[in-house]
Design a protein around this nucleic acid. Structure first.
Length: 227
DNA sequence: GCCCAGGTGGGTA
DNA sequence: TACCCACATGGG
């Protein structure tokens, strides 16, 4: 039987190398929700442009955002691309928040994480990454966010096969880590940092990857490779 | 001009 | 399940 992957050791190595990343880059939980949708398949720089435009128009006030017509919303978020789709998605998310908590995200605190996750996934345009980003970074729930960077880093290090499902990849981490919000928060941000700095899509070699020296201790999970 | 960036949903076999 | 594709802007 192969040894187990040790994500906690990877986390400590990344933290020692890069230090705290202080995610999510937003002032309020509501701004996290907006950014989570806007960043879908989009460079964060363009998201910042859109958030700046939204802030100028609405102050990122919930009632003001909710009152924005969809075409006006689309105009403001234009720099992120997919602006018509994303305007519709933001409308649906804002309407859900309005009905669920009147736009006051603190009022979601008593609602179980699983319930919120299912409701978020029921919103057209909210997939698992967007839902989990909102749960972790806006609502402080202990869920692990899997994104393109997480997938690439995990595949490059042989932790998973590149085609694994979202839930399989998330389970790889959540099954082997303490259920700690601040750890999940930092770990995801550190993986993004690692990927941006050392694990480009174009160049499959990642030298000098900060985890390279630890590679020998990373073996596939017991049930991986038999699927 | 080409590839890439903190995805998602719909269609097809 | 496994691929394919549309959605779209801005930077390297």
């Amino acid at each position: 039987m192969a040894g187990k992957l040790d994500p906690l050791a990877a986390y400590h190595a990344l933290y020692a190398r890069f230090g705290p990343q202080r995610w999510w880059p937003a002032e309020t939980p509501l701004e996290v929700c907006l950014g989570a949708v806007l960043t879908q398949n989009t460079n964060w720089r363009n998201v910042e442009r859109a958030l700046t435009a939204l802030r100028g128009e609405t102050g990122l006030d919930f009632a003001n955002l909710l009152a924005l017509p969809e075409d006006e919303l689309a105009r403001l978020i234009h720099p992120t691309g997919y602006y018509k789709q994303k305007a519709a998605r933001l409308r649906l998310l804002l309407e859900w928040l309005d009905g669920r908590c009147g736009g006051d995200l603190a009022r979601l605190e008593p609602v179980p994480t699983g319930v919120l996750r299912r409701e978020l996934l029921d919103i057209r345009g909210i997939g698992p990454e967007t839902a989990d980003s909102i749960l972790l970074y806006a609502l402080g729930r202990p869920v692990f966010v899997v994104d393109a960077y997480t997938r690439r880093v995990a595949a490059r290090h042989g932790w998973v096969k590149p085609r694994g499902t979202y839930d399989d990849l998330a389970a790889l981490f959540t099954d082997r880590l303490p259920r700690d919000v601040s750890l999940f928060n930092e770990f995801h941000a550190l993986i993004v940092r690692l990927a941006k700095d050392f694990c480009s899509k174009r160049n499959p070699r990642c030298h000098p990857c900060p985890l390279a020296g630890m590679m020998s201790s990373y073996l596939l999970p017991d049930n991986e490779g038999s699927r």
